[in-house]
Design a protein around this nucleic acid. Structure first.
Length: 595
RNA sequence: UGGGGAAUAGUGUAAUGGUAGCACAAAUGACUCUGGAUCAUUUAGUCAAGGUUCGAAUCCUUGUUCCCCAGCCA
C-alpha cells in the first residue's frame, strides 16, 4: 500500500480548478504578477521562491506561503525555487533542512533541480560587500552591541551621525574587512555596516549591519566562514542571483523593502546595462511584495512557541498530530489537497486576520469525504449477542467502500453471532430524539440485519456489559422486504473477527480561540487543553484494514476520519482521529443538557 | 509625540465609480442503510463624520482603531 503521490493531488492542488481571470478576481499579488506579465516586465518571465530558514519545522502558515509562491509559478508558467535562507549558523540544523524538503515535497510543490542554499552564495556576497566598500558605501565599525543601539537613536529621535568609524578610508575598511574574514577578531568585535543615513526615519536605514563575526560551524559550509551576512544584506542577492521576479514575504518586512532596494541599487550604482565601465553589468533587481501571515484560532504559529511546546514536552514532538506543523498535520491525516483548498479559500491580503479553525476542518472534511474509503470501527465496544443467530456461523456481507465514489467498489465484512457496537449507541432509558438502540427497540446494523434488543446484562456496579438481541433474517443486507423503517443505523464489528486497535482522539491544543488570552503574568501554555489527547486503548476494527500502511486514511463510519499512525506494529494498529464527522446528535445532546 | 501598513456580516473574503456577492459558522426544513454527505431556506456587513458625483465600499478631507519597526535573528 502506501500513498500514491499523484493521487494525493488529483483534481485539486496547484493546477486544479484555477480561477485566474475568473469571476472572483485575482488577489492583489496575482494581479501585480499579471500586470507585470502583460507589460512585459522581465520579458514576461515569472520566478518565485520559498525561502525558509532551517531553524524549525514548517507549519500551516508556511504552507500558505508555499501554495502562494508555487501556485503563482504554476499558474503563470513560471519557475519555483526552494531555497534555504541559511545565514545564521547559530540556529540552523540539518534536521530542519531535511524536514523542510520532505514537507514541501509532500505538499506537491515542485522545484525540479532548483534547490538552493543562500550560504552557497556567500562568496559572491563577499565580493559585493567589497564593491560597496570601494564605492564608499560601507565601512567596518568597532562599536559593540550596546553602543550600536545607543548610536541608532529611537523611534522618535535620530541616531548619532558622528561615529569614529564612519569616516575610515576605503583602504582601511578593505583591510579590516579582509581581516574579519580571516578570523582575526572575536565574535562581536567588529561589523561591516552600510553607510546610509543615521537620521533616517526608518530605523532599518540607519547604517544597517551587513556582516557580523560568528565563529560557529555552519551546517552546510562548515568552518569556511566566520563572518555571516545579515538577512537584509543577503536576501536581495539570493533573489537576484536566482533571477527571482516576485520576492514574496510577510508583512513585517514592509519596513525592510527600502533597504532591500537600497542594497541592490548600491551594487548597481556605476554598473551598466551592457557591462561596460569599471563595475560591470547591472544585477537583477526583483520586486519585494508583502502579504499577511496566517493566524488560526485555537493554536499558535510562531516558531518560538512551537519550539517551547516541543522542548518542554507539552506535546510529543514536532510531528505531534496536535501541532499545526505540516508534519504534525500529515501525521494527523491531513491531505495535501485539503491544504491547497484551504490556502485557496483564505486567499492573501495585506491585513492581519485570524481564520476560524472550522474553515480548515471544512476543507479537510470536504476532501476526505470524497476520497476516504469507509470502514467500520468501534471505539468503545459493547458486546451484543444475537440469540437467534447460529453459533459458529460467519456470513460475509457486502459493504460499499465509498458512497461518494462508485469506482471504489465494495468489500466483504464478516457478520457473526457475537458483535460489538458502540457503547454510546445504546441507552437503557433513551431521552427524546435518541433514535439508537434501547430495550425493545429495533435498529439496523449497517449492511447487515435489523436487530431488536431483548435483554440487558449488567455488572455488579449496574453498568451495562452485554446486550441480547434477536435479528430478522429477512432483512439481510439491511432492507426490510415488508418496507418497515427503522430510525437508526449502527456501525458494528464481528467480535471474533475484529482487529484490536488503539485510537488516539485529538481536540484543539488550546481551550481559547486566542491562546495568548491569559491573565497577567501567565503565558499561552496556561491555555493548553488538558483533554487535547485521549487514548482509547481497546478498540475494534473490521478485518479489512489489516496491514494498512502508516498514513493510510479511512472514514470510520459515523465517527470521523482516521489514519494509521506510524507507531503501528504488525500486531497492533494505532489510529489517529483526523477530524470528526459533523455530529448533529452531539449538538442536540448539548442543547438538551443546557436546558 | 518618528516612519511604514491596514480597516467590508460572528469569521475569512469578492465587488478595480454602476444591483454589496461567495464561503465558513449559526438556525430551520427536505432527503438519507453514516444523526455523514447532499439540497433548500433564514439570520447578518462597507470604522466614523463630512465632501465630489446622476451614482461612492471604491475618489477627496478630517478623525478613530489595529498591526509592524529601536537583534551583531529571519
Amino acid at each position: 500500500m502506501g500513498i500514491d503521490k499523484d493521487k494525493e493531488l488529483s483534481g485539486n492542488g496547484p493546477n486544479g480548478n484555477e480561477e485566474r481571470g475568473g469571476e472572483r478576481g485575482l488577489d492583489f499579488i496575482r494581479q501585480m504578477v499579471a500586470d507585470d506579465v502583460q507589460s512585459g516586465k522581465w520579458g514576461g518571465r515569472v520566478a518565485t521562491r520559498f525561502p525558509p530558514e532551517p531553524n524549525g519545522y514548517l507549519h500551516i502558515g508556511h504552507a500558505k506561503s508555499i501554495c502562494l509562491n508555487y501556485g503563482i509559478a504554476a499558474e503563470f508558467g513560471g519557475e519555483f525555487n526552494l531555497r534555504f535562507d541559511d545565514t545564521n549558523p547559530e540556529k540552523e540544523e540539518q534536521e530542519y533542512v531535511d524536514s523542510i524538503i520532505e514537507d514541501v515535497r509532500w505538499l506537491g510543490a515542485k522545484w525540479d533541480d532548483r534547490l538552493f542554499y543562500g550560504s552557497d552564495y556567500f562568496g559572491r556576497m563577499y565580493e559585493y560587500a567589497i564593491e560597496l566598500i570601494r564605492k564608499g558605501k560601507a565601512y567596518v565599525c568597532d562599536l559593540n552591541g550596546d553602543q550600536v543601539r545607543e548610536y541608532r537613536g529611537t523611534l522618535t529621535q535620530p541616531g548619532r551621525e558622528k561615529s569614529l568609524y564612519r569616516n575610515r578610508t576605503v583602504e582601511e575598511n578593505l583591510e579590516l574587512f579582509e581581516r574579519m574574514r580571516k578570523g582575526e577578531f572575536p565574535d562581536g568585535a567588529k561589523t561591516l555596516r552600510a553607510k546610509i543615513d543615521m537620521a533616517h526615519p526608518n530605523l532599518n536605514m540607519r547604517d544597517p549591519i551587513m556582516y557580523r563575526i560568528v565563529h560557529e560551524t555552519h551546517h552546510r559550509q562548515g568552518d569556511k566562514w566566520c563572518i555571516y551576512p545579515m538577512y537584509d544584506w543577503a536576501h536581495g542577492f539570493e533573489d537576484s542571483i536566482e533571477r527571482i521576479t516576485h520576492s514574496i514575504c510577510t508583512l513585517e518586512f514592509e519596513n525592510h523593502r527600502p533597504l532591500y532596494d537600497w542594497f541592490i541599487d548600491a551594487v548597481n550604482d556605476g554598473r551598466t546595462d551592457d557591462g561596460s565601465g569599471p563595475w560591470g553589468k547591472k544585477i537583477h533587481h526583483p520586486q519585494q511584495i508583502e502579504f499577511a501571515r496566517l493566524s488560526l484560532t485555537y493554536t499558535v504559529m510562531s516558531k518560538r512557541k512551537l519550539l517551547k511546546l516541543v522542548k518542554e514536552n507539552l506535546v510529543r514532538s514536532w510531528d505531534d498530530p496536535r501541532m499545526p506543523t505540516i508534519s504534525g498535520m500529515r501525521r494527523r491525516g491531513y491531505s495535501p489537497s485539503a491544504m491547497w483548498s484551504f490556502a485557496k479559500v483564505i486567499r492573501v491580503n495585506k491585513f492581519n486576520s485570524t481564520v476560524d479553525i472550522a474553515l480548515l476542518e471544512h476543507c479537510l472534511r470536504e476532501d476526505l469525504n470524497k476520497t476516504s474509503p469507509r470502514v467500520m470501527a468501534v471505539l468503545k465496544p459493547l458486546k451484543v449477542i444475537i440469540d437467534n443467530y447460529p453459533e459458529g456461523k460467519v456470513e460475509e456481507l457486502d459493504a460499499i467502500n465509498n458512497p461518494e465514489d462508485p469506482s471504489a467498489g465494495t468489500r466483504k465484512v464478516p457478520f457473526s453471532r457475537e458483535l460489538y457496537i458502540e457503547q454510546e449507541d445504546f441507552m437503557e432509558e433513551p431521552p427524546k430524539k435518541f433514535f439508537r438502540l434501547a430495550p425493545g427497540r429495533e435498529v439496523r446494523l449497517r449492511y447487515a440485519y435489523f436487530i431488536t434488543c431483548t435483554d440487558v446484562v449488567k455488572d455488579a456496579g449496574g453498568n451495562v456489559v452485554e446486550l441480547h438481541c434477536l435479528y430478522d433474517p429477512a432483512t439481510r443486507g439491511g432492507d426490510a422486504p415488508d418496507g418497515r423503517k427503522v430510525k437508526a443505523t449502527l456501525h458494528w464489528v464481528s467480535a471474533p473477527r475484529a482487529l484490536k486497535a488503539e485510537v488516539r482522539l485529538y481536540d484543539n491544543l488550546f481551550t481559547k480561540p486566542d491562546p495568548e488570552d491569559v491573565p497577567e503574568g501567565q503565558d499561552f501554555t496556561a491555555n493548553l487543553n488538558p483533554n487535547s489527547l485521549e487514548i482509547v486503548a481497546d478498540c475494534r476494527v473490521e478485518p479489512s484494514v489489516a496491514g494498512a500502511a502508516p498514513l493510510t486514511r479511512y472514514q470510520f463510519e459515523r465517527l470521523g476520519y482516521f489514519c494509521v499512525d506510524p507507531d503501528s506494529t504488525a500486531g497492533k494498529l494505532v489510529f489517529n482521529r483526523t477530524v470528526t464527522l459533523k455530529d448533529t446528535w452531539a449538538k442536540i445532546q448539548q442543547s438538551q443538557q443546557q436546558g
